[in-house]
Nucleic acid binder design. Sequence first.
DNA 1: ATGACCAATCGAAGCGTTTCGATTCGCCGC
DNA 2: GCGGCGAATCGAAACGCTTCGATTGGTCAT
Lengths: 327, 327
Amino acid sequence: MVTILDVAKHAGVAPSTVSYVLTGKRAVSAGTRVRVRQSMELLGYRPCVTSAHSRTNVLALVLPLREGVHLPVVMRFVTAVVTAAREHGMDVRLVTADGGAAGLRGLANGGRADAFLVMDVELDDERVPVLREMGRPAVLIGHPAAVTGLTCIDLDFEAAGARCVDHLADLGHHTIGFLGAPSVVYARNTGFARRTLAGFRAAAVRRGLTSTALPTEAGGGAADAGVGALLAELPEVSALVVQNEAVLGRVVECLRAEGRRVPDDVTVMAICPDELAGRLRLTSIQLPVDVLARRAVELVMAKLDGRQPPALTLLPPKLSPRSSFRR
Amino acid sequence: MVTILDVAKHAGVAPSTVSYVLTGKRAVSAGTRVRVRQSMELLGYRPCVTSAHSRTNVLALVLPLREGVHLPVVMRFVTAVVTAAREHGMDVRLVTADGGAAGLRGLANGGRADAFLVMDVELDDERVPVLREMGRPAVLIGHPAAVTGLTCIDLDFEAAGARCVDHLADLGHHTIGFLGAPSVVYARNTGFARRTLAGFRAAAVRRGLTSTALPTEAGGGAADAGVGALLAELPEVSALVVQNEAVLGRVVECLRAEGRRVPDDVTVMAICPDELAGRLRLTSIQLPVDVLARRAVELVMAKLDGRQPPALTLLPPKLSPRSSFRR
DNA sequence: ATGACCAATCGAAGCGTTTCGATTCGCCGC
DNA sequence: GCGGCGAATCGAAACGCTTCGATTGGTCAT
């Protein structure tokens, strides 16, 4: 096995100098740097993690697979994060265990990753204090209620909820419904779900619309039940906002089965990845998974380099018009 | 940060004793063991990777994201591996860089993972020699031409290809087509693609059927081109085997657009995860992603425990009958 | 010529863990 | 009562890398 010492000998420098070439923590003259790099190349050197304080080149992606999270969407994030991380020479360690705050602290202490990306963030997330004090760069995809001392990136879900209402109100709709995430997601106070709902409700009041919002459970038949409940409560509903990728397709089918033409009788809007909405030909607020993931990786790499990015970056919602119907 | 030394002090033993409790490499009396374990619990000790020779509790999943690999299917594997690994207390490190043999050696030397799972295996894979000599447990999902000294698990794709032909021949079909993976996948000599094709061709000869096999590229319009090419070459085709998840749905649409009813005029069989085939209501050979992943993790954990599992485990193909049409 | 200063580099200590030879201790047979 | 034995435990070295104070050598103003 080739160590940093072998490289140093071969290049005729001290081991520490090789380390500085590697980490960039001190200046190394251009000549020395290329010589060391050449020796590394020649000897086939690979840095070894198993050594105190060494860099791991690992980005930990913390995504507890809890009830109510929709795997396909999560995996989209994983894919995007992995892709972006690779461009920075980082591998990704998937941390799916829901160790909560304790688990996170263990990871950080153990030096198992250089930096952290945290998903599925709750408004009052127990992991936040750990993130603040753990002394390793972390970025949240999503954001808790208080963001000071953190770095978060998120879609502006509150604006997204409002944007849907405005769009529908502008089209002349008076009675609209909202079908959201499974109820456990709201029960956990998951940020994106709570915020979208808040934005939706406030805007409905502001625009003077009649509205109802319901969660939608996972699993077969749940979409049918959700649509049924909504139609029962609000028979004259003429537009629907759906924020639940798992049931979206089924919701449209159900409406049609109930004899409501989509979009002629009921306009359906979705908040989801654009590709999914495109397939179903629905007007949507884009959930920009790739952008979020890429920006998150960039932010965390910036922090690794010692920069201090803003506490909160909110992406404005973008609307993809497809088949909204004017009343 | 709590170290092994703190635990040792607290429990009134030497640090080495704590280490032995942790690794089990030497006997420790029952009394001491529980005392040490209690101290760990109490102090919230977490082992630290960044230290020579220590265990990482990381399973490296090597899946180079090369041209022609279909991400959704790969991500299914990732999900399954992550789930299975968690049951053994292991996290998963996704290694997506195509570092080839050199990259793999670096990972192994660097002690960045306790064990390896390797995907996207070619018949003559350059990583195989490294796997043999690297001295860390590894399991291949897929298998190269020569498997001695390795541990591999795979669906028996050759049998799968043959099974499709037999099924169709039994139904009375005389002229059948095969639409496979993108051509780059064959060019790389990727095991599963090559073997399926070999099985398909041999069986077609054996059963005396007329057949044509074509690759199907990725991207929009590729399915149309593939179907077009196949129909041009074999206008009287009455059955089709598709081994390409990315284009499967589109292939069926194309056939219908060409005026061929599915399955009445053309029976379409798929080799893909059962769920996808079920959605499209196609007879299929199941690609048992979950089983493969789970067994692979079990095999690699067995090797970590010093056992020596067989070099090659082949799962027999299973057919899910759905809508094959009798001639 | 001199001293101050800065960039580049060195050498050694230190990180948290594993590993291995050495030591302790209790027990048994004689 | 003594030598021998094995299980349990200890202590220290070693692992490959980082870090930090110290040193070198060159430049520049005086």
